[in-house]
Design a protein around this nucleic acid. Structure first.
Lengths: 332, 332
DNA sequence: CTATTAAGCCTAAACGTTTAGCTCTATTAT
DNA sequence: ATAATAGAGCTAAACGTTTAGGCTTAATAG
């Protein structure tokens, strides 16, 4: 592996000149030619570690997420990775397996690795994580979830609006008893959606019965059992809104097992996965998040920080969700 | 950010001693105490970049995969990330979006980043990639797919056996017309499964009709259209074997739309995703790959190489797949 | 024709570690 | 008592870059 010094020897130029050349500086045309030749001949490749030591940049961004074996996160990461790599950054991914201790450990690990910045989907409101972050002074952008009451760049879905508008849409279609299958209490997105739902219940005069709110754990089975609870009620909801992909699958399965006709017996609005919703029978009305936009915006925000062209005040962006109307909601 | 030098100043010891201490070497008990105190007081954190420059190790492994927005890959990566991080390595993930040019570019990028080793799910048989790899001298372990006829550590599923045994199982259950929905020609796994299937056709005297072999692109829609082709045949297959998760979903949807009863009218064997297969109706008989074992073994192989305790000859491990029998195959 | 400026290049010091090889002290063997 | 040895620490060079500041040469202004 040849270094800048080898090139210096080969060309007779100094390392400083070569460094300048490599970084796009001006050199005499003849030298430029010479250098191009030398680089090719010696198969020179920049040592990014050495450069990083000097410049204090690693051109690496850490991405800290709850889990990787989940289509929502992996899709998000997919977009993030594409955007980051287009900007010349590499992506170190750490998953903390939904565990707060691991979350802290992996955060520490990433900071120790010298990442230039961080994209973070936090578990909850672990103040330890936040302390570590502020102490480290590494720019961070929260994605999908954020810490309540803390000054930090963030890119989120409008979860409140998603739930509010979905309930509103169902209300417009004549539904008054609207079940919702939410994620676990304490999880940022689930709490926001909860608030949106309850606000809609008030604003649209929906049936406020507490059993209409079911809590799952974002897994397939929990979606199924929540839906089964709805089905076993003496007074079933006429429509159910499910708030993530896996639970949507589970809910559909419960309906199939119960031989419940969609949307004649129960209307349903699912979440996220477009591909599945298109192919299922009947085509599912769903709420989708703009994952691509979220990812791109988060990366943009982070790069702005890294390049120092974002002011002192933090930016919080919320992307609206989209209601894709198909055939799983009945007008009553 | 304090450095080893600051600690030297603080303790009066030399940087060499401190380095030794930090790397687990022996120091006098009193000095050890002093150093512990200093590290805490000055909040010292190792600069891995500087260390990497000197040791020529980055403690970073590159993972190069076709795509990230796919449950198969992301599950695999999830296990890989867990295993690597347990060994103190960080994981740089690059996805090449199923594109050969991008594959080469990302490989180049990773090698330039100075990863210590590489886990690689290659697209096909791009010799350019292989040249780059051998030139770089970076240890690499192929995962899930490998280059034909090339000496390289690899950890694979027994794709041939998976297809062969699945067809065998269907044959045992009295099926002679067995449809298979394969991935694209030229993709390593798809080709192996193809061979396993055709071998089974010969060995078990199955119906050798070419239309019983359909090729999808591993996406939901293609699974659906392949299954629809089967359903539109005058002489339908009595059983269909689908060779990945997404196409399995698509195939099921096609059956539902066609109001085809599983397994009474068509038997089906799906692939991979346990969670879905358990919850679907009827519970699906599926072939699963041992993703966890594959990931762990691949990481082990790579770490062995990195630590220099693997001989000169390459290791290729094949993990058998598992047939999980449920209710989607009819005995006829 | 001289003074000024700019371009291009160079020297040398850094960045934060590791490590070979040396010194000093204390212990053990003879 | 002396020689040999081991343990602990130190010095200084190295890893491959970047970069401030200085030097030389040529171009431009007066």
């Amino acid at each position: 592996m040849s270094t800048i010094k080898d090139i210096a020897k080969y060309t007779g130029l100094s390392v400083a000149t070569i460094s300048k050349y490599l970084n796009g500086g001006n050199v005499l045309p003849e030298n430029r030619k010479l250098l191009e030749k030398a680089v090719k001949k010696l198969d020179y490749r920049m040592n990014h570690i050495a450069r990083g030591l000097k410049t204090r940049k690693s051109l690496t961004v850490g991405v800290l997420i709850p889990r990787l074996n989940n289509i929502f996160y992996s899709t998000l990461i997919s977009h993030i990775e594409i955007a980051l790599s287009a900007a010349g950054y590499s992506t170190i991914i750490c998953a903390y397996q939904d565990d707060p201790d691991t979350e802290l450990a992996r955060l520490d690990f990433l900071l120790g690795k010298g990442v230039d910045g961080l994209l973070f989907i936090p578990l909850g409101s672990s103040s330890k994580c936040f302390n570590l972050l502020t102490a480290s002074n590494v720019p961070v952008v929260m994605v999908d979830r954020t810490f309540e009451g803390i000054e930090c760049d963030a890119v989120l879905s409008d979860n409140f609006g998603a739930a509010y508008n979905t309930a509103g849409y169902l209300s417009q279609n004549g539904h008054r008893r609207i079940g919702v299958i939410l994620g676990p209490e304490g999880v940022y997105t689930a709490d926001e959606r909860h608030q949106g739902y309850t606000q809609a219940v008030r604003d649209f005069n929906l049936d406020p019965e507490p059993e209409l709110i079911q809590r799952g754990n974002y897994g397939i089975d929990s979606g199924r059992s929540c839906m089964e609870k709805f089905l076993s009620m003496k007074n079933r909801p006429s429509a159910v809104f499910v708030t993530n992909y896996e639970m949507t699958i589970g809910a559909i399965i419960a309906l199939e097992y119960g031989n419940i006709k969609i949307p004649d017996e129960v209307s349903i609005i699912g979440f996220d996965n477009l591909e599945l919703a298109q192919t299922i029978k009947p085509p599912l009305t769903i709420v989708t998040q703009r994952l691509n936009k979220i990812a791109v915006e988060a990366v943009k925000l982070l790069l702005d920080r890294l390049r120092g062209n974002s002011g002192d005040n933090v930016t919080v962006k919320k992307f609206s969700t989209e209601l894709i109307v198909r055939d799983s909601v009945k007008r009553i």
